[in-house]
Design a protein around this nucleic acid. Structure first.
Lengths: 335, 335
DNA sequence: CTGAAAGCGCTTACAG
DNA sequence: CTGAAAGCGCTTACAG
């Protein structure tokens, strides 16, 4: 049998006190409350299984103690790992988090951003999808604390936490150059919407090659959707002088590469060397184990939480900073 | 410069109408509104970049159009995949979702459940962590729509969606039995807290073995934490008559097994055959590719959304049903 | 130590 | 077609 929701008035009435007093109790302000009153209220709340309506409370106090995380794509392991760390940090400071998934859809991102704003969350952590700064105007105009993770948005200045992508790709290329590779290819996902890590890694790849005095040939950099990667690899290996090494722009790209190489029985590192950005679990026990560039997830999560918390507690306008985290090279057997 | 939040009164004043009329506009009730008024309000809302405060609205209308998903552990790929599907379904029906991560911690689960209740979400989807039915009493007493996914809770009757675990393990064992394996081991994560899939798979394993007239030896079923699996495997393979086949209870267990076998240079399927429950991405291009039992994620997600939506729209008390989904055997080269 | 009253920002019958 | 008024469930100075 369905029970009606209990309100603070019900509690007050049953306990024979005023709503104010019950409110004091809920908010742990016991200073001026007799032990007797306190016990009585406690008991009634138990009996009635009373849960305060946060909508009413938030409406009044204008703080929710919840922060929103808007993630570009919840299927990326990297994102959920960072979220996990952020959540742990925030929890210690008495905050809770609502996670929303943009599913790589700028439209959805916008809708969830609106929802989070309407919900009056105390701050927002965003793994951006789109690149339309207007979407963030509201947050900026109203000084709603926010920090960007993994990606940046053109035209928006904000605290940001991301990998030093140039360093990451530099590590990969250097590793390969030292082993004597000269024809190195780089594969990454599409950049029809400008996506920071992809753009930076492409740019970094060119620079890294140059600094090792290696030529970047016309057909060495590929930016394309997952389902076209295998097809593209077929053409790459059909070329006159196929690359002797491939750098995978992220774990999804790596997956396609390994799948293709296995099918074609092309041996790693014998026929082609592989290095991948993002240190996903199976690379360690794959045969051969894959050399990867990892992101310091723990540190990135901690910094993200810290930055947001600072903005929430000190509303002073400290300058915005973009934090770049050093990648780590994990040397294994694929090159 | 920080702007004050705009309210419906600001809009009303600036547009020269009453709050009621603005409210009508926000709620798309244009029936009795002159085109002129409508345009004026629209323009003012634009100018002021007005966003209604959902807390106020929800307080009044007692509907939020958001549902909460409380996931046991957001790091499990299976969970995020189901969440993605559920979200897509719900979105088509005009609902949004807030995801909360219990991080395998019953205490956290309880806190987030409270928060979701306080937020007045219209329904809750739970991948349960704990097994304490009391935690769900409030939801039940107040007929808050909910559906359980992946796991059940003793003493709670509710709509539920999960894999047919008996069938899953039966498929695995049968596959191996047909290939002539007699000594089959089963490894799964701990069951100190009763966790449905693990319990059912253990039970199902015994039944499946029996139905194939195979003996389950003392040392064939292992339930232990991840970090103890490799050690345990060492002892298993040290035994007099080590198993010729291993079934992995889920993808995390599989990871440990593959890692161990690689280290010890034990060949698959030559020295030991492997079958795993949960069809994770890399199993397809691993060498050798791994035979797995997959869950029909899409279907499960669709059913979950459907069940919840039904409870939300028809508050009639249809009987609660537990839906079991048929696993699929994906035959590859590891046995 | 406790209560009455105002108010947070909306929505919704109802009157006109 | 539009507005005045009451109310959703809380919190918070303030008075006593």
């Amino acid at each position: 049998m369905k029970k009606k929701k209990t309100t603070i008035s019900d509690v007050a009435e049953k306990a024979g006190v005023s709503k104010s007093t019950v409110s004091q109790y809920i908010n742990q302000r016991f200073r001026y409350m007799s032990a007797e009153t306190k016990d009585r209220i406690e008991q009634v709340i138990q009996e009635l299984d009373f849960r305060p309506n946060d909508n009413a409370r938030n409406l009044k106090v204008k703080k929710t103690k919840v922060i929103g995380i808007l993630v570009a794509n919840i299927l990326h392991t990297l994102s959920t790992e960072i979220i996990r760390t952020v959540e742990e940090q925030l929890q210690h400071r008495g905050m809770k988090v609502f996670i929303c998934d943009s599913a790589d859809d700028p439209e959805k991102e916008k809708e969830y951003l609106d929802l989070l704003v309407s919900t009056q969350v105390d701050g927002i952590i965003i793994f951006p999808v789109g690149n339309d700064f207007k979407v963030y105007n509201y947050l900026i105009d109203h000084s709603i604390p926010m920090v960007f993770v993994d990606r940046l948005v053109d035209g928006v200045t904000s605290d940001s936490v991301l990998l030093d992508n140039h360093a990451a790709i530099f590590l990969a290329v250097s590793m390969l150059a030292e082993k004597g590779h000269e024809n190195i290819a780089f594969l990454t996902l599409p950049i029809d919407i400008p996506i920071t890590p992809r753009l930076e890694r492409i740019e970094g790849f060119k620079k890294a090659m140059a600094s090792h005095k290696l030529e970047v040939r016309e057909d060495d950099i590929h930016s394309l959707p997952r389902n076209q990667i295998q097809e593209k690899l077929a053409r790459i290996f059909d070329a006159e002088k196929p690359p002797t090494a491939i750098v995978a722009g992220n774990d999804l790209v790596l997956r396609e590469i390994l799948s293709y190489l296995k099918q074609q029985k092309i041996s790693i590192p014998g026929e082609v060397a592989i290095v991948s950005i993002d240190d996903v679990a199976y690379t360690e026990f794959y045969e051969p184990s894959i050399t990867t560039i990892g992101q310091p997830i723990q540190q990135m999560g901690i910094k993200t939480a810290e930055l947001l918390l600072n903005r929430i507690t000190n509303s002073d306008q400290a300058p915005y900073i973009t934090y770049r985290f050093a990648p780590e090279l994990i040397v294994r057997s694929s090159c």
